[in-house]
Write a protein that binds this DNA or RNA. Structure first.
Length: 466
RNA sequence: GGCGCGGUAGCCAAGUGGUAAGGCAGGGGUCUGCAAAACCUCUAUUCAGCGGUUCGAAUCCGCUCCGCGCCUCCA
């Protein structure tokens, strides 16, 4: 069994083999830090996190780079409107971005390079392209990449560019380009840029959008790396342009595998502020859902399928997680200190195979979750008939823990009760011993109002967060 | 117009030629003082529609309908 991934470049499923033996280098396009990221953005980061975690689960060493786009039209416009220096303006949203990642249990990448910290690398790369004749400077000082010089242009997105004309969507100030599809490597300063500008061989200005990813991926991952990811919308022109710049500059293949995730939609429609269905992570947390519940929803649809986000689905995620939590708590109450993999019951071994087979198949998360839930059912059944030993329970918990290194979702939240709550449980037990069912039920309702469910079991009452 | 993705039970979602995984919700039952949890059981003769290929199709082909995306800086 080995990992297969769908490579956008070949439009087919390919066996995954890193360029260097056991070391995977991956680059993912990160946020433009002009505002809070929305849940659609996090769908992409979540899929990247799943792959990152699964690669580690499979035993690979991973070096992951995610860029922070902290200079572009939007960040400049916003910082001028707020009358703040660019860095100061974007730092607020960079901080918020990392807080959001933490809430969702998204692992940190090894590097988060910001574009504005790598201007020299970008200038160097542009100079190289100019020396090799792939770039030209227009009269206003901007530098463009000439796509006509790169015969492979379009190989990723498979777009036929012959029909692409300078049209309504092409800004007026871009009339200086040789070809409508040529894109900016360096943008000459414009008064709309305020004081956001850097010196360069072509005069004051700022980098184009695409060049940062080429320059920074080369800086941290080398000229050729393994996996490049992003949302489908990045395929063209962004990734196509990265390929053009990078491969023309180095003469080498830029990235071996290209993975793109489909969009998230809300209630079957594209998320948009005008439809009032636009959500940041914070919006949903404010409605009382946990990061873990949101993670479950974002992770549980295969990344190449559009994900339809609804609150109904969030509620069902909550219920699914409760089932998992109950199973794990049951095992914990039973488990011994130590166990070996030999202690795994046959049904758990079967689940282990199903889990791996699912994720090996282009991160088929549904298959992996089916294995998880099949094991929950088999395990509950076995525990009901007292067929699970302490060692088996420990071995299953160890297995779940290793799965969770890939899923980031299985560990239940702690539910330590305060003294007052415990005192009420004891009072209720006393009432039950006296067969005072009215008082017992009253106390149960009171506990429920405080967010606790009491379960009467043969081993005594147990408390669960509701 | 070009390119691409998708339409599977009330909701979500696997399955890409061999006779419909899994989760949630719902009905019935076991257990329980009653519950909760758990377990058992039921819930798509059918996979948007219509044709075709095949011994056999949700899966392949064609057409139609519907949703979503990209086609110059939006994950």
């Amino acid at each position: 069994m080995s990992l297969k991934l769908y490579n956008t470049m070949s439009r087919s499923l390919e066996e995954f083999h890193p360029v260097a033996n056991n070391h995977v280098r991956m680059y993912t396009c990160g946020p433009t830090v002009y505002d809070h990221a929305h849940i659609g953005n996090f769908r992409a980061y979540m899929f990247e996190d799943l792959l990152r975690r699964y690669l580690k689960y499979c035993g690979y060493e991973v070096t992951h780079v995610m860029n922070l786009t902290d200079v572009d039209d939007k960040t400049i416009r916003a910082c001028i409107a707020e009358d703040l220096p660019l860095k100061e303006y974007t730092s607020t949203y960079i901080k918020a971005f990392f807080e959001d990642l933490d809430r969702l249990g998204i692992e940190r990448a090894e590097h988060y390079p910001a574009a504005t910290d790598h201007i020299p690398e970008m200038i160097e790369l542009i100079e190289k392209l100019q020396e090799k004749g792939f770039a030209y400077q227009s009269e206003d000082g901007s530098v463009y990449f000439s796509i006509g010089k790169f015969k492979d242009y379009g190989k990723l997105s498979h777009l036929d560019l012959s029909g692409m004309q300078s049209g309504a969507r092409v800004a007026q100030d871009e009339y200086e380009k040789d070809n409508a599809a040529d894109f900016a490597l360096w943008k000459a300063w414009d008064e709309k840029d305020g004081d956001v500008a850097w010196d360069s061989p072509w005069g004051r200005g700022r980098p184009g959008w695409h060049i940062e990813c080429s320059a920074m991926s080369m800086r941290y991952l080398g000229e050729t790396f393994d996996i490049h990811m992003g949302g489908v919308d990045n395929m063209f022109p962004h990734h196509e342009d990265e390929i053009a710049q990078s491969e023309c500059a180095t003469g080498k293949m830029f990235a071996k595998y290209w993975l793109h995730c489909a969009h998230l939609i809300v209630d079957g429609k594209k998320m948009s502020k005008s439809l009032n269905n636009f959500y940041t992570l914070r919006d949903i947390l404010d409605k009382g859902y946990s990061g873990r519940e949101i993670r479950f929803v974002l992770i549980s649809t295969h990344y190449r399928q559009p994900l339809n986000f609804t609150f109904e689905v969030l509620d069902s995620a909550r219920a699914s997680l409760a089932r998992l939590d109950e199973f794990i708590r049951r095992l914990k109450e039973l488990a011994s200190e130590n166990a070996t993999p030999e202690d795994l019951p046959a049904w758990a071994r079967k689940a282990e195979d199903g889990f791996k087979a699912g994720l090996d198949n282009d991160l088929n998360i549904s298959g992996a979750f089916a294995a998880v839930f099949d094991m929950v059912t088999a395990g509950n059944r076995a525990m009901d008939s007292a067929e699970v030993t302490g060692d088996s329970a420990r071995a299953i918990l160890t297995l779940l823990h290793s799965w969770d290194s890939a899923l980031g979702i299985l560990e239940p939240p702690p539910d330590e009760a305060d003294e007052e709550t415990l005192r009420m449980v004891e009072m209720r037990q006393q009432a039950r011993r006296n067969k005072d069912w009215g008082e017992a039920d009253r106390l149960r309702d009171e506990l429920a109002a405080r967010g606790w469910v009491v379960k009467d079991t043969p081993e005594g009452p147990k408390l669960r967060r509701s």
